[in-house]
């Protein structure tokens, strides 16, 4: 009976959504805002990767809200999980192979992470993608050797300062007569590393913040698992 009800529910929902989707102008999207952005992004922002121009320029306020959500989630997680009790048992060590592998991977991951962050305005990638790789770099040793101490105060220092850099850059624009989050420093030459004004700086701050936050989240969840 329960299975039948589930089937009916899912089927009805699927039918409804398909009926709606059939009415959408699929494949011929009405690019209104997007079209205008495609035409003007090179002049206004100067980032070769237009998605970056949208993320940090046109929709910078969304991005601010987004990193703040990660921050709020980290704070909420800390509040919910509390502090790890001293002397709680840990997972066993993962053995020499994984330990060595993690030690080898660490510098490479950090390098790749920073590369992706710093070229976010030129090629696919950016602060979020690179930040996740950075977080993985710092989480890997923790997986291989669960006893590795995590420097939570240090992480929260990076997190706080990086977030502050993002907002202060926006506030500088506001206080010098522009609008909040307006890109500064001109656009530079399209396609070069030092172009797109403050965007690379913002992406660096964002990448560090995302990396620190995700690493902190993962470390806390890993701690929670052994804290019984």
């Amino acid at each position: 009976m329960r299975n039948l009800a589930s089937l009916l529910f899912a089927g009805g929902l699927a039918f409804l959504l398909m009926a709606i989707a059939a009415l959408l102008p699929f494949g011929h999207p009405p690019v209104l805002a997007g079209g205008a952005i495609l035409e003007q992004a090179a002049d206004q922002v100067g980032a070769a990767n237009i998605v970056t121009a949208v993320v940090l320029g046109y929709r910078g306020l969304d991005t601010l809200g987004e990193i703040t959500i990660l921050f709020a989630a980290a704070a909420g997680l800390g509040l919910v999980l509390g502090r790890r009790r001293a002397g709680a048992p840990r997972d066993p060590d993962a053995g020499p192979v994984l330990r060595t592998g993690a030690a080898l991977m660490f510098p490479l991951l950090v390098l790749v992470g920073f590369h992706i962050i710093l070229h976010g305005h030129l090629t696919p990638g950016g602060g979020f993608q690179g930040g996740v790789i950075l977080a993985a770099a710092f989480f890997l040793p923790l997986l291989a050797r669960p006893g590795t101490p995590v420097d939570h105060p240090g992480l929260s220092l990076v997190e706080g300062t990086a977030g502050a850099v993002f907002i202060v850059t926006g506030l500088v624009a506001l206080l010098t007569g522009g609008e909040f989050l307006q890109p500064l420093l001109g656009t530079g030459t399209l396609g070069t590393l030092f172009s797109a004004g403050t965007l690379p700086i913002l992406y660096l701050a964002l990448g560090l913040k995302v990396g620190a936050e995700l690493a902190g989240l993962l470390a806390r969840l890993a701690d929670a698992e052994t804290d019984t």
Binding site: T68, G160, T161, G163, I167, L171, L174, F180
Partner: peptide, 15 residues
């Protein structure tokens, strides 16, 4: 500023 300042303060609070 009513959006930016509370966020800024929240980021800096732990520091």
């Amino acid at each position: 500023l009513t959006i930016a300042l509370p966020f800024l303060a929240a980021f800096l609070l732990p520091v």
